[in-house]
Amino acid sequence: MKNSTLIKGTAAIAVGAALLLGGGGTLANWNAEASVKPGVISAGDLNITTDNTKGVWTNGTSQIDINSYKIVPGDKLTFTQVLDVTLTGDRMAAKVSTAGITATNGFTGSNVIVSDPQLTVDGVAVPNILNASEKVTVSITLTFDAATAGRTDVTAKYNFNDIQFVLTQQPVA
């Protein structure tokens, strides 16, 4: 009796396997193919470096040595740094900002104001949205408030420490 059951089971498996094998062929349909070449997709580039020249300070009329120059109320000193901006990409846009200014500020409150970076290319002011590789001059201005009264902030120091000029890609609509 046990052998009979075993034989029947084996037979059922064999029939099932045969059906599967036979049914496989029935899935075949016509097919054809054609080739295309979409080409190579290349990524763009984004980079910013100093152009190996050290930034300079001016007092509005001439270049100064910031290590020896002493400012007075009303002074506006400008630090300019030439940067090589690399921007490659058909829909590339990027903005320059400053970061890492951990200034050691010995001045009182708002007597010293540091501006956002201003950009010029070949001496002409440009908006702070760049689309192509350029040699960009970035400037930031420090203003010692002319309304500073009495002898406030004589011999004070404002140490910029290190500044990072950060080039950040901007989303394009």
Binding site: I48, G55, W57, Y69, D162, I163, Q164
Partner: peptide, 9 residues
């Protein structure tokens, strides 16, 4: 990013 050291005013 690129770094610069403007110094002390």
């Amino acid at each position: 990013a690129a770094s610069a050291s403007p110094g002390t005013v």
